[in-house]
Design a protein around this nucleic acid. Structure first.
Lengths: 117, 117
DNA sequence: CATTCGTACAACCATACGGTTGTATGTCAG
DNA sequence: CTGACATACAACCGTATGGTTGTACGAATG
């Protein structure tokens, strides 16, 4: 499957909330249901449920049914996708700085490899 | 200076928009003023100006006055701070999986080192 | 110093977001 | 089958967000 900009919108958007980041953290290797998760935060069960839904749509967690609960687990691959974009920015930065070090010697800009898309 | 959760809110929030991510990309090693940047997007100058302000407040770019322009440059350190949080999630995941591999042998959970704060 | 270029900012509008409460669905225990 | 537990979802509300237009400021040009 292809990753499109809208996916990054959802991923970064999902991570832009402290409650959701904490849910992600707890979901790493944890096995709490939504009700149990909700116990950690000063808000209603429904609010936490919404946060979980947003994280799920962003591909950062999954909900696995276990008995009558739905256990929330982090999708580490999702986190890696986000990290990879930041890696690419850094790489781009290095190459630009590299070019700068080449001190306007050398040829034309050339086609740059795409980030996103 | 200390990085608090609200900083991550701003950083992730700033990156949750395709226009802003593109501005960051262009700001890496680029030297465009805001008006020049605005030329790349199908929206008003003021809108782009707002996006730049959001990125600046998030610490992801800086505006350097050059002549009558304000050149937008990426703050790579800001990007690294975001990346580092994701690294920590991944590290946490590895250690949890590591513990899982230790297969419920060994002792109690123990205090976990803080992520964020 | 008047003009123009580039930026800044306020006011406004529509929609999205984070929270609430209430009701409905699905699943296990007795 | 009934009841209780865990989750789902709709409706609503206040505020934040992303866009617009219009006006004001700061710096270089003639």
């Amino acid at each position: 499957m292809q990753i499109v900009p809208a996916d990054f919108d959802r991923m970064f958007g999902a991570l832009a909330d402290p409650t959701r980041r904490d849910i992600v953290r707890r979901a790493i290797g944890g096995d709490e249901g939504i009700l149990e998760l909700a116990g950690h935060y000063p808000m209603s069960f429904a609010a936490v449920q919404k946060h979980v839904a947003i994280l799920e749509r962003a591909g950062l967690i999954t909900k696995d049914r276990i008995g009558r609960r739905k256990v929330v687990r982090a999708n580490v691959e999702g986190l890696r996708i986000v990290r990879r974009l930041l890696d690419q920015y850094e790489e781009l930065w290095r190459s630009r700085i590299g070019r700068m070090a080449e001190l306007l010697a050398e040829e034309a800009p050339g086609a740059q490899k795409g980030i996103e898309r």
